[in-house]
Structure formats: C-alpha cells, structure tokens
C-alpha cells in the first residue's frame, strides 16, 4: 500500500496488517542531525496523536506522535547504534517502529503523498 502521512510529519506504510511508522524527509531536514532516538517498547499501546517516540538532535528533543491507535510489535533497533539513519534514509531504513492497528479505518484520515506535499508547501 502507498505511504500515508500525518500533519505531525510521520509516515505510515500499511502491509499485511502491520503499519510501519517513521518521520518524513521534511521532518528530518527540520530537525537536523539526529543523535538519539528513543523508541517505544514492544507491546506498548499507542493512541493516535499520543506520545510514541522521542527524536533528539544536537540542539533539542522532539516528540514523535502515534499517527494511529495500535500496539507496538517491533522497534527499529538499528537506530540505537546509528541514529543518523533517520537523516540518511528517513522514509525507508530509518523507520521507527511497527504497530498492529486497532482501527484500520483511521488510515483514511491520513494524507496521501500528494496531499502531504501540498501541506508541507503551505507551511
């Protein structure tokens, strides 16, 4: 399925019942050099728009919100050793976590790529 995007600059890719979540290229560019990512533990229940992860640049810590309701099934452990992966490949290898969704219909509330592009250009 094609990627979906939130207004908080997370992307979601939904496949086989599991949603992979990360931050967008726009988000990583705004944050600058990522030096630390705090990921949610497997099994953690996330609520749409609630805190899910923390991403830290040299200068500041920023919250990453859950774009959907669900339960974390996997966190990207690569980011523990190489947080710069978020800068290098934000929308592929730099994914943050995977979650099982409580309500797939919430996906419809997210933007598609064209809508997100318009959204970012309007910022």
């Amino acid at each position: 399925m094609a990627k979906k995007f939130s207004q908080e600059h997370e992307w979601v890719e939904y496949e086989d019942g599991v949603a992979t979540v990360g931050i967008t290229d726009y988000a990583q560019q705004s944050l600058g050099d990522i030096v630390y990512v705090e990921l949610p533990e497997v099994g953690k229940k996330l609520t749409k728009d609630g805190d899910a992860a923390v991403v830290e640049s040299v200068k500041a810590a920023s919250d990453v919100y859950a774009p959907l309701d669900g339960v974390v099934v996997e966190a990207n452990e690569e980011l523990d050793d190489n947080p710069a992966l978020v800068n290098e490949a934000p929308e592929s290898d730099g994914w943050f976590f995977r979650m099982e969704l409580s309500d797939e219909s919430q996906l419809d509330e997210l933007m598609d790529e064209a809508a997100y592009k318009d959204f970012v250009e309007g910022l």
Binding site: G32, D33, V35, S57, V58, K59
Partner: peptide
C-alpha cells in the same frame, strides 16, 4: 542557528 552544513558538521 545553522547553515546548510548543519549543527554537527559546523561544530
């Protein structure tokens, strides 16, 4: 606050 080189690179 930073240039295109970025905070880490500038440091």
């Amino acid at each position: 606050v930073q240039y295109p080189l970025g905070v880490k690179g500038e440091h």
